[in-house]
């Protein structure tokens, strides 16, 4: 298994894939730096909640697009070079799928971890009072980590099965918009849309006082049904995707 894992990293040599999440992280930082100037918070204690909420919204917009680019960069080399028919004579198809997914998940995991580091640095730079609580940390990981893994799984499947990578990239961009709409428009079918889970798993609420133009933030309970649905959908999506890859391996038919 180590050999297979090693080859996944050998394959991405010189593809500069790490630049994709690095660029998105930089963009997120710049966005937050711009947003913090125009924010009107009621108290200094709200700073962290503002940051967490803001980051949740920025992730809704940026992570689907980033996942699409990441998945495309990881998968298109296999399709362009017709490598799957060679790899599948040396490696179990299911394991190949797992390794590919694990590589993508590694990038995503590092990205979410880097966001946490960036958040801490951002708070320090702007002298935010206090810090984030354990609950907030867990909720952030569920919102940004778990949902992003679901989005990445979808994008990896699309990229693996699309000879033309325009389609998965278009889906990724559409996902960004759908996710963003879910923050502002209440619709019953959002639970069936993976990108809407950034909002459905939101854990910070806000009150906006129109007269003073001051916003106050508060914690809201996590939507347990949304969490349960996502926790059930993720392994189901993984198993279905894996089976699909095993039985309909692209380029082998």
């Amino acid at each position: 298994m180590l050999g297979e894992w090693k080859t996944e990293w050998m394959k991405v040599r010189r593809r500069k894939i790490a630049l994709v999440p690095a660029a998105f992280l930089l963009f997120t930082f710049l966005w937050l730096s711009w947003a913090v100037r125009s924010s009107h918070m009621e108290s200094e204690e709200d700073s962290w909640m503002w940051l967490l909420m803001c980051l949740g919204l920025v992730n809704t917009i940026l992570i689907p697009a980033m996942s699409a680019m990441l998945a495309s960069r990881l998968c298109d080399a296999e399709l362009k070079g017709n490598t799957l028919k060679l790899l599948c004579t040396m490696e179990e198809k299911g394991r190949l799928f797992d390794m590919k997914l694990l590589t993508g998940a590694s990038y995503m995991g590092v990205y979410v971890a880097a966001e946490l580091v960036m958040m801490a640095a951002f708070g320090r730079m702007h002298n935010f009072a206090g810090g984030i609580t354990l609950r907030q940390l867990v909720c952030f990981l569920l919102q940004s980590g778990l949902v992003s893994m679901g989005v990445l799984l979808l994008q990896m499947l699309l990229s693996l099965f699309s000879a033309n990578q325009i389609l998965p990239l278009a889906v990724g961009l559409a996902g960004s918009f759908l996710g963003l709409f879910s923050w502002f428009i209440r619709l019953p079918f959002w639970r069936a849309v993976v990108w809407a889970y950034y909002n459905l798993l939101g854990y910070i609420g806000q009150n906006w006082d129109e007269s003073s133009r001051i916003v106050s933030y508060y914690e809201v309970p996590l939507d347990r049904w949304a969490l349960i649905t996502l926790l059930a959908a993720l392994p189901a999506g993984y198993i279905l995707g894996r089976q699909l890859f095993i039985h309909r391996t692209p380029g082998c038919g």
Binding site: M10, K11, R13, R14, R15, A77, K80, G81, N82, T83, L84, K85, L86, L87
Partner: peptide, 10 residues
Amino acid sequence: IESPSYYGHL
């Protein structure tokens, strides 16, 4: 099989 398999960037 059919055409050679390769990673063009390597």
